[in-house]
């Protein structure tokens, strides 16, 4: 039994999502190798070697792997797959892009976005936007799995000293090329791994007011900023802030929903948060049905007051 974990990183730092996926991999059991595919990513491999209970870190560096585009990344994983019976990755946009390609090339049916490991071949995963949980047993010889990381604690990267082995990249299939990233620059924590998230909905009314009202509270709390689909569709917040079925699925310690009504598709993205606070003017808003603490108030009064009190 050996597991290949496809690490999430940005060539400079290892993502917390990798640490969470490692926890899932440990529950499956067996020797675990972590694959760091990238360019100029030696520091990432070094960081990964600090995890305990990891056999080795495989570092593959090439121009084609810099942005981990699907075709070269999948070709690399497939070339290594013979030595492993499980390939696992966090269900980030990179993991979701690359792993099904790996699965098809291996003629394996992937198990997507597991939230629980029942046994080495049996997993729980949400379907219908989290409105049902399916327990599935994978019958293929190899397993290809993506992990919904909000369901797993992050493994601590300390005390380990797994060796880093540099491996060659496979030839670039040259099917696709990177043009540019337009990433949101932010000093705030990443949504997927933040301890606290402050989210805004359509009630904010404009991008300007979203920024005026939500951001100061988030910054006082050291929180990441989220948004409902309605707020994103209306242009109040960028797409990568969207929490929900079609956005990010998060489970922070504290989720503060501000002016969010609580559509099913939004709840699917945050209902596993430890503590949920809802602030909404409409006392019948569905969000109050999942909130631990509900405050019926106008967000334009309550949020500035909250910010001053913090």
């Amino acid at each position: 039994m050996a597991i290949l974990l496809f690490a999430e990183h940005d060539n400079a730092a290892l993502s917390d999502q990798t640490a969470r996926t490692l926890t899932a991999a440990r529950r499956i059991g067996g020797e675990i190798d972590i694959l760091v595919a990238g360019k100029g990513a030696a520091a990432v491999a070094q960081a990964a070697s600090a995890f305990q209970g990891v056999r080795k870190i495989l570092l593959a560096e090439a121009d084609a792997l810099e942005h981990r585009l699907a075709e070269p990344a999948a070709a690399l994983i497939v070339s290594l797959a013979g030595d492993y019976d499980t390939v696992i990755a966090p269900a980030t946009t990179t993991g979701k892009n690359v792993l099904p390609r790996v699965a098809a090339l291996l003629d394996v049916m992937q198990v997507s976005e597991i939230v629980e490991v029942v046994s080495a071949d049996t997993f729980k995963r949400p379907i219908y936007a989290g409105n049902a949980i399916q327990t599935v047993q994978a019958t293929d010889g190899k397993k290809v799995i993506t992990v919904r990381t909000s369901g797993f604690e992050a493994a601590q990267a300390e005390g380990g000293s797994a060796p880093v082995e540099t491996i060659g990249a496979t030839a670039d299939p040259r099917l696709s090329g990177f043009v540019e990233n337009r990433l949101s620059e932010s000093e705030r924590p990443e949504l997927a791994s933040a301890r606290i998230i402050v989210s805004g909905g359509r009630a904010l009314g404009s991008e300007e007011r979203f920024r005026q009202v939500i951001l100061p509270v988030a910054d006082k709390l050291g929180a990441a900023v989220g948004a409902s689909r309605a707020a994103v569709d209306a242009g109040y917040a960028p797409n990568d802030w969207q929490v929900g079925q079609t956005g990010k699925v998060v489970a922070p310690e504290l989720y503060v929903a501000c002016g969010i009504s609580g559509a099913i598709q939004h709840l699917a993205g945050m209902k596993d948060s430890k503590v949920i606070v809802a602030i909404n003017k409409d006392e019948d808003a569905p969000i109050f049905q999942v909130a631990d603490y509900g405050l019926v108030a106008d967000i334009f009064d309550a949020l500035p007051e909250l910010e001053r009190a913090l």
């Binding site: 394996v108 049916m109 198990v111 049996t122 949400p126 379907i127 989290g130 409105n131 049902a132 949980i133 399916q134 327990t135 599935v136 047993q137 994978a138 019958t139 293929d140 209902k271 949920i276 006392e283 109050f288 049905q289 999942v290 909130a291 631990d292 603490y293 509900g294 405050l295 019926v296």
Partner: peptide, 20 residues
């Protein structure tokens, strides 16, 4: 099918908390 569906269940539900 390659995946055997053993069970489909309701997700854990959250109870509404308190209003402050």
């Amino acid at each position: 099918a390659r995946l055997k569906v053993l069970k489909t269940e309701e997700p854990g539900t959250r109870k509404a908390g308190v209003k402050v």
